[in-house]
Nucleic acid binder design. Structure first.
Lengths: 339, 339
DNA sequence: GGAACAATTGAAAACGTTTTCAATTGTTCC
DNA sequence: GGAACAATTGAAAACGTTTTCAATTGTTCC
């Protein structure tokens, strides 16, 4: 059913009906109520494409999805969904194959120029991320989940990665550990750099120096956790504690420890960053895993909210949120054995 | 830049430019080439909302995302993305809060009636799923990932859940196991029913009967795997083998077995269904996990393809794909101890 | 060379809304 | 009761494309 027909049935003009449904103030309460209830009864719903053409609003927020299908993606998007379901705004997932920067930039450009989205959220930026400059020059509102160090101003929400790893490392140092390994995230990403800083600073505060041989960057997976932990623990001067990038990584670390006949929490302490996945919880691991915790889902919800504010015109330089990270101590961290 | 302006710069009419860009046959090759290259150079791209209004095509496939943010979701969507990136079709994620059928049905109705999508994909149906009847009555193309037993004809792609669990169970029976437990998926879903059938049939073929006390339904998670495995293994007449619904479930099962001082593959055999997640691989578990395997990502890619065919007008009753499932034996399944 | 046809291009209408500006109706107050 | 104003409603233009139908240009063939 179209507006013309629906309006005719109500004995009103399309103008009034449109206003009533869009909540404009100049329509009388009685009319508005009647229009609303009849719309429900007769099943009239404005054609979203006509609305979009006329208003210029796309009614969607764009998110790029890499081919790797990152583990965090579903949780983040699900968090976004929670906020957006009352905002009449969709989430548009755009596939992206690009294996180099230039292609990726082009993919964003296509997305924005075709006016499919009102705003874009980008993830895991690097310190000087070309996407930020490009989105800036296109003039589309965008929010960075994470932070960049580019000179281009941008709205962002990030967790305190540096503080998280610093506190985790301090905790291990306080327990008496002196050789601590770190299995970090993807090299070059700002979050990985911040985490490394936290790791170094914790050492420096105590007059110690983080051993570069005990620091490695890789993707978050069970497999990489296993491989690196195994390699560390078999080396000549093995660490007594490991800081892991994610609970998935920690899973592999646990496995590596066990495979060498050792026990987590006794022979080797482990602490990891936990994005809070419903299907894998740190407290259920054996032994339960000490973590720095920040909900990826909550970040998604808040990023959606902030993006809506950006679209509504809130100033970009007002939107900078740094979330503190909880430190939750469980059984996987303890003083080193020889104490 | 708009069509009018772009056409004027080229010295052509909007009509010709539109036809050139849309690949209509009646435009000369020379003109088409010039239009294409100038569009690239000047950065002209049709406003997607105008195109959609005019053509009635939404250029998007809808997927509902439950609040639970299922673990499979990211892989499936990522698989879809792989097919759709060359099809100029987006994936529209619609948040859904609904906790009852009626609300969920309404959410689908809104999505379809607002013409935001050309087709919809639904997941994990039940034998008589009301969504299928509703989508049928709305006349929108839709594909079911999974199967239903409703009388309403529907296009579907499913994996052979029955065969998968049947073969897994046969394998365990052949090894000599006689008390086998099964940790199934969500009660009432068709896939869970099929898996249960496979479990029962494997027993029946050998003149045995599956013990109802050893069958349980729950969501796929580490936690539920642990809880149920623990409960089974501590019971009076404990099973010697467990069929788990997912690799996440298996993770919890492994943990439960270890927590009781037993060893997977020696004291208890475990086999699970593996949707192939990049961050948690069955062969990396210790001991490596025997599985029935079918890639969720591949299913997403194929579902996207079939949905495009549906949109293009292919007959619904032609689209029924049942995928066989690989059985991959590793270290977690072995003859029971007392043999 | 021009008739007949094919190939190519263009003008104008239309998709279904929103919104500007104008018109109508209702209310207040002397 | 009617002037002055406020509240409510409507007509028509517009958003940026695609597509129908008509016009123009190019080609073939006697």
């Amino acid at each position: 059913m179209k507006l013309r027909e629906f309006a005719k049935q109500l004995g009103l003009s399309p103008t009034t009906v449109s206003r009533a449904l869009s909540g404009y103030p100049e329509v009388s309460e009685a009319t508005r109520a009647r229009v609303a209830s009849e719309a429900m009864r007769l099943g009239y719903r404005p054609d979203i494409n006509a609305v979009r053409l006329k208003t210029g609003r796309a009614g969607a927020i764009g998110v790029m999805m890499g081919r790797s299908g990152e583990i965090h993606f579903a949780e983040f998007v699900s968090g976004m969904a929670q906020r957006l379901e009352t905002a009449d705004t969709d989430i548009l997932i755009t596939p992206i194959t690009a294996h180099n920067d230039e292609d990726e930039i082009q993919a964003y450009r296509r997305l924005v120029e075709s006016r499919r989205v009102d705003a874009v959220i980008i993830h895991s930026p690097r310190p000087n991320d070309p996407r930020i400059e490009m989105l800036n020059s296109l003039g589309v509102p965008f929010l960075v989940h994470g932070r960049s160090e580019t000179e281009h101003v941008h709205a962002w929400l990030d967790i305190d990665n540096e503080g998280a790893v610093r506190r985790a490392t301090e905790h291990l140092l306080d327990l008496g550990h002196r050789r601590i390994a770190m299995i970090n995230g993807l090299r070059g990403k700002t979050y990985a750099i911040h985490r490394e800083q936290g790791f170094r600073i914790a050492h420096q505060e105590r007059g110690l120096t983080a051993d570069p041989n005990l620091m490695v960057c890789d993707k978050f997976s069970d497999e990489s956790g296993f491989r690196h932990a195994r390699s560390f623990l078999e080396s000549a001067n093995a660490p007594t504690a490991i800081v892991a990038g994610s609970t998935m990584t920690a899973l592999g670390v646990y496995r590596a420890v066990r495979s060498l006949g050792m026990t987590v929490g006794q022979d080797v302490s482990v602490i990891a960053h936990d994005d809070v996945f419903p299907y894998l919880t740190a407290e259920n691991m054996v032994p339960s895993l000490s973590t720095t915790r920040s909900s990826m889902r909550a970040a998604g919800t808040r990023c959606a909210e902030l993006t809506l504010q950006l679209i509504a015109g809130r100033a970009v330089d007002e939107i900078h949120e740094l979330w503190p990270v909880e430190l939750i101590l469980r059984e996987s961290t303890a003083p080193p054995r020889w104490r």
